[in-house]
């Protein structure tokens, strides 16, 4: 047959997983964004090993020491110290723990709830869709800041409340996007083909449609992780997150703002970490979306 030959010519194909990985490695955004996030994960896990000081240890004799490159710099404190003499670098390192925990757990929870509702609404439509869509509309009418304060007020401050607040507020992001994407996919001939072959609706929804929604979903989860990092920082900033003896980036920013004229670096260092982290999540999300699209791969 005329068009058989072309397949034979390109045999010796690597396995499916391997090809996915190769596609990922070709995306600079995935490499840089993912690389930085991986670096942060290592830092968070190894914090006790790599932090030069106890992040809580106060030393009033060495307060407001400036970072490397400025007059009065102390080589023991690479990024300087705050007004209580605590090492900024060590606090920054320990701060990644809360930031990443919140990012991963909150984004995953929001994604689970939102994806499930979005899939059901987009595929079954009808009453299911009406109920989910109204719920989303009502939900989005609440100001998110007030909603998060409400959640924290009810549950008490702490990481768990912060995670719950983010998931409770942001599931709608996932539900909306997944609903629209599911509706679009459900129109596809491959879904009709699956029906004709006799597959049940749950099989069609989770085996046929979900894999096609997955790239968008993955990109969205990654973006949500960036958002979660910011929200955690904001809640820390206003004192609604963890108690003040656990170092967080938001807490450091809040503290640094008060002494910005004496020790600007206490403010600048966590802000830079926050910025870089959110940027990395966004880049990773964008890169993943491109790399996982089977048609855009080549």
């Amino acid at each position: 047959m005329a068009d058989s030959a072309t397949i034979i010519a390109t045999t010796g194909a690597p396995s499916r997983g391997r090809r996915r990985l190769q596609a990922l490695a070709r995306q600079p955004k995935v490499v840089w964004g993912g690389g930085f996030i991986l670096f942060l994960v290592v830092v968070a896990l190894a914090a006790p090993l790599i932090a030069p000081h106890d992040p809580l240890a106060q030393d009033l004799m060495s307060g407001t020491l400036p970072p490397l490159g400025f007059a009065d710099y102390d080589p023991g404190f690479l990024l300087g110290t705050d007004d209580l003499g605590r090492d900024v670098l060590s606090r920054l390192i320990y701060g990644t723990r809360i930031a990443l925990t919140v990012a991963f757990v909150a984004a995953t929870l929001a994604a689970l709830v939102g994806t499930l509702l979005g899939l059901l609404a987009g595929y079954f439509r009808g009453v299911t869709d009406t109920v989910v869509s109204r719920l989303i509309e009502i939900w989005m009418a609440f100001p998110p800041v007030l909603l998060s304060i409400l959640v924290v007020a009810i549950m008490g401050s702490g990481v768990t409340s912060v995670i719950a607040a983010i998931a409770i507020i942001d599931w709608t992001r996932f539900a909306r996007v997944v609903r629209a994407e599911t509706m679009a996919q459900a129109q596809g001939d491959y879904v009709t083909a699956a029906r004709t072959l006799g597959f049940g609706r749950w099989t069609i929804l989770f085996r046929e449609i979900l894999p096609n929604v997955a790239p968008v979903l993955l990109a969205l989860i990654t973006l949500e992780m960036g958002i979660a990092v910011i929200v955690e920082a904001i809640l820390s900033f206003v004192g609604l997150s963890v108690s003040s003896d656990t170092p967080t980036w938001g807490g450091m920013i809040a503290q640094g703002r008060q002494i910005i004229y004496q020790a600007w670096w206490v403010f600048a260092a966590p802000l830079a970490a926050l910025f870089a982290t959110v940027l990395a999540f966004n880049q990773l999300g964008d890169g993943l979306r491109r790399a996982l699209d089977p048609v855009m791969q080549r």
């Binding site: 596809g188 001939d189 491959y190 009709t192 083909a193 004709t196 006799g198 894999p211 997955a214 089977p294």
Partner: peptide
Amino acid sequence: RPLRKRMQMIFQDPMSSLNPRHD
């Protein structure tokens, strides 16, 4: 469902009728 396997369909656009995520 029991009748499904006895009646099948070939589509106009083979690209959109084959799930891009499945080999």
